[in-house]
Write a protein that binds this DNA or RNA. Sequence first.
DNA 1: CCCGGTCGTGTAATCGATTACCTGACCCGC
DNA 2: GCGGGTCAGGTAATCGATTACACGACCGGG
Lengths: 333, 333
Amino acid sequence: MANIKDVAERAGVSVATVSRVLNGRSPVAETRERVLAAVAELGYRPNVVARSLRTARTRTLGLVISDLRNPFFTELADAVEQEARRLGYSLIIGNAGESTRQQDDHIRTLLDRRIDGLLVSSAGTGSPMLREAAEAGTPLVLLDRTVPGVAAPCVRAEGRAALTELAAHLAALGRRRPAVIVAPAGTPVGDERLEVFRAALAAHGIALPPERAGASPDLRPEGGRQVMRRLLDLPEPPDAVLATDNLMALGALDEMRARGLRVPSDVALVAFDDVAWFAHLDPPLTAVAQPTRALGEAAVHALLERIEGREAPSVLLPARLVKRRSCGEPATH
Amino acid sequence: MANIKDVAERAGVSVATVSRVLNGRSPVAETRERVLAAVAELGYRPNVVARSLRTARTRTLGLVISDLRNPFFTELADAVEQEARRLGYSLIIGNAGESTRQQDDHIRTLLDRRIDGLLVSSAGTGSPMLREAAEAGTPLVLLDRTVPGVAAPCVRAEGRAALTELAAHLAALGRRRPAVIVAPAGTPVGDERLEVFRAALAAHGIALPPERAGASPDLRPEGGRQVMRRLLDLPEPPDAVLATDNLMALGALDEMRARGLRVPSDVALVAFDDVAWFAHLDPPLTAVAQPTRALGEAAVHALLERIEGREAPSVLLPARLVKRRSCGEPATH
DNA sequence: CCCGGTCGTGTAATCGATTACCTGACCCGC
DNA sequence: GCGGGTCAGGTAATCGATTACACGACCGGG
């Protein structure tokens, strides 16, 4: 593969001149032409590795995602990748699979590769490497999940408006016994969603007692199903259930079907994260849609700010309610 | 950040010795101890960029995936990433979003980054960069999709056994008018699946006439829905439909629901790719399951062979039929 | 006519590792 | 006692770019 020296020889100039032409500095038109011609003839492409070594910038970002196979995160990762690429950065994605150890493993590798900045939607809350990376001064932005004790801006959605609207929606449909399937402890957003929802319901005189707020052991369908089982076995089972993550909602649905219960006539179901599949379920699921792509883009922007050495504030983007048929209202959709 | 020179000074040896210790060559126990102590004290980590420049190996693989948001490919990418990491390689994933231009863009970037090898599940068939990369001698392995004119081993699933079993399954259930929703022209596997299925049906005396084999314009739900619409409008509509991709199957399901048709009583439905969601649909979908993770692993192994300069044969792994309730049989599941 | 400034380009140092080659110490056997 | 072999470890070249600095050409003004 041709290198800059080959190009310089062919164009009859020094390597410095070639470098300058390619980086858009100084040379005069005629020299420039000769260099570009040589580049074209040789099919020369600059060696990014050598450049990175010299400039100490790799133009690569790292993204460690808590669970790539969760469609919400897949879309998030895709959005991050596109925006990063649009801005001239490559992205290395590491999937933590909700394991702190794997997450640390990935962060370690990414730092070794001298990425310019790191984006993390953290699996769990106790990640030594994450703390270390932050303290070592690596530009860092958290995504979707805050991590207590890590001083880094966090980009995520907040559901106040959407959950307020949802409370009104459910109240209007006569649902009086709502329940929530909460993300496992250690994912701070889960508790927050619960509290916001509870407050919104209270405004309609509807209570959300603790026994109707069940924490799932994990963010997988099976976890949601277990919680749903407990909720349905309550002496006063709920007539509406909100799952704070899309996979847990699926599990909840499974449990209802297994018992022969119908959505929405027996129980209304609402999920966080409006993944594409929800519109294809029967009935189509009402969901709190996070602005997934906007989150990914905002995270990249914040990270680039940090890389340039500027401050980047945390970002909270509003989620919105997408009403479909799983609460009982006839859909316009 | 500490570099090898700092470590050498601290340990009172030359950089060469440090390098040798870290790469497991020669030095004697005592020197070795001193170096490792210095490494630990300084928190030294080798600069991968510098190493790559010198050794001309980046220990990074590239994966260009045709559509990352298709759950089949998400899982495939995840499997590839895990296996690559297990073997000491990082992975850069590029999502082509079924666009040849984006695919070429990604391949270009990956080659510029001097990845050691490239894995591609090609979007479309006419990709100049792909051909170029192959001809330039970049270790290359195709994934899931062959590309005519590109000389590279291909790792994918073949459905002969599964489709034969499916034909028998449908015949036993009395379905006599099968149809297929085929992937768009340009995805060679689509046509192949159709032909294999047709042959398998013939063995049971069941015909699959051309008008009941509709090519979708794309691999998205909407494409599948369009084909389903045409199929249902036929004078003799099908009583069983096979979609050769999971997203097209979803669209087909939507069209049936919109018409008030029931699965499986009115029409049986079978999909390629057994994505996790299928088990949660109503009814749970019978599917031709590709050995997704095994495919990803085999692809990485084949690529490493190519990187080491050895030949790597193409790999065909058998898919298997996962019977659920969408063809009418009571499920054991 | 000469001095200083501007501009284009070349020379060479540099980034941080790996590794070929060389040197010196030591040991063994004849 | 000395030649040769083995081994540890130092010196310096190298990978392919970027860039500080130097230099020469050219120009304009006093």
